[in-house]
């Protein structure tokens, strides 16, 4: 579950029955529960940690630019890993602003008659949202600072 732009939360509960059935798949060594976190698309491991708790939780620090994350719980003997369960994917809020490229924009007309989407080229005549904010910075109208307090 996403918490903020650099923290995700994972919780788990594993029954003894599930563990017993899978431990024998790892042929040797002492077996430990392990949590792994992956980026869903890249299938790239972001972090992993061992735990003794069959019922547990953890906050994971990672700055994902809207990459869906997936957590997997499994057992490991230091050499091999057997996955038991995967979480659903979670998107975290992104600290990275969206594209500011001066490219064509998608617009939509929505009326009682229906919706129509269309593309328009970037129009220099108008300021973009980012430029409006920059304009505010320059003219410093009263209280304007609060507009940017979190950006």
């Amino acid at each position: 579950m996403p918490v903020n732009s650099d923290t995700s939360f994972v919780y788990w509960e594993v029954t003894d029955r599930l563990l017993r059935g899978n431990i024998r798949k790892l042929k040797s060594g002492s077996v430990q529960l392990m949590i792994k976190v992956f980026g869903e698309d890249a299938n790239q491991e972001i972090c992993s940690f061992e735990t003794k708790d069959k019922i547990g939780k953890s906050y994971i620090s990672y700055k994902p630019p809207l990459i869906p994350l997936i957590a997997e719980i499994g057992i490991s003997n230091g050499k091999g890993f057997v996955g038991l369960l995967k979480s659903k994917s979670a998107y975290s809020p992104s600290p990275v602003k969206g594209s500011r490229e001066r490219k064509a924009e998608v617009w939509m007309t929505s009326t009682a008659e229906g919706r129509e989407m269309f593309s328009i080229p970037f129009n220099e005549r108008y300021m973009s949202g980012a430029e409006i904010m920059e304009y505010y910075r320059r003219i410093k109208i009263s209280h304007a600072a609060s507009l940017f307090s979190r950006t």
Partner: peptide, 19 residues
């Protein structure tokens, strides 16, 4: 009725704008 289409970011009105 004519407005730009964007993908809003996950957010809330809580502390720091997140969850």
């Amino acid at each position: 009725p004519e407005n730009q289409v964007i993908a809003p970011s996950p957010s809330s009105w809580g502390y720091r704008g997140y969850y």
